[in-house]
Amino acid sequence: MSIFTKIVNGEIPCYKIAEDDKFLAFLDVNPNAKGHTLCIPKQEIDKIFELDDVLYLGLMQFSKKIAIALEKAVPCKRIGMAVIGLEVPHAHVHLIPLNEMDDMRFQNKVSMTKEEFETLAQKIKDSL
């Protein structure tokens, strides 16, 4: 069982942005930039291209909705999207507020307090 499935099941807490019956969005706790959000299907499927077409397109639509809210809530030039999938064997989309190309590199990390995560999660929710 992946760490994301444990988050979906409520076994591990997260800074939730949005969810519906099939998808969940939450802040990455080791963010590249303030507002770095993960969008996942609730069903544990390892690779994004293993999702059936309906689930894949649904994940993209869900991610787009979250990205639009994220861009309203976090000052940035645009929202970058990455699908890498090596760190957790559960398909996921990274949405990262970008001000420079280095914000997409998974080597630069930002530190945030629990309160900063909670405030930011609420700000993004309010922009949905």
Rank of each mutant, 00 (worst) to 15 (best):
M1S: 14
I3Q: 05
I7Y: 01
V8R: 02
G10L: 12
E11F: 01
I12F: 08
C14E: 00
K16N: 05
I17K: 02
E19R: 08
E19L: 08
E19Y: 07
D20R: 05
K22Y: 08
F23N: 01
A25R: 01
F26A: 04
F26Y: 07
N30G: 09
N30Q: 14
P31M: 02
A33F: 05
A33H: 08
G35L: 06
K42C: 03
I48Q: 13
E50Q: 15
L51H: 15
D52A: 15
D52I: 14
V54M: 12
L55K: 09
Y56W: 12
L57F: 15
G58S: 08
G58A: 09
L59I: 07
Q61K: 15
K64G: 08
I66F: 08
I66D: 07
A67Y: 05
A69M: 03
K72F: 12
A73E: 11
I79Y: 02
A82W: 12
I84P: 09
H90I: 06
V93K: 00
I96N: 02
L98Q: 09
N99I: 07
E100F: 11
D102K: 15
D103Y: 07
F106I: 10
Q107Y: 14
K109D: 05
V110E: 07
M112L: 09
E116R: 03
E116A: 06
F117P: 01
T119M: 11
L120D: 02
I124L: 03
I124G: 02
S127M: 06
